[in-house]
Amino acid sequence: MSGDLAARQAELVAALVAGGPLPPGFAPAPVAAARRALLRKRAGDVARHWPLLAAGLGPAWPATFTTWADGRPTNGSLRDGWDLARDLRDRDTLPPLGAEELAEREAASRYDGRRPPRPRRLPALARTGGAVAVQVAGRVRLLRPAPR
């Protein structure tokens, strides 16, 4: 058993956050409970970073987030929420509040989906799901709310 702690820790983390198989010898039910608890905790963290997205989804937020996040390792709450919002937008299920929040974020920062978002230096206009936001010198204004 010695010397393989690193590999076994990696297997356990993969099972918990990346949809990997349950490592041998572990009791399935408690590990599954831990996996679900982790998703709930992530849902709360992301909602804190994306309050309007979560509010727009209302009671559907926990389920929407956990379904999306299951098997998808976290990139941090900011990026997780961003990726989810873009995903919902592409499927035309982004609520108006979420669209406005996404438009504001897109106007404020550049995010390529792979590296952490970086603040934009130049003025920018972003439209998402009918919402239009503008950013000048770091100040963001919503020009047009999303249609309701």
Partner: peptide, 9 residues
């Protein structure tokens, strides 16, 4: 964290 993945927990 392990194997390049954050457990978040």
């Amino acid at each position: 964290r392990a194997g390049g993945l954050e457990a978040g927990h």
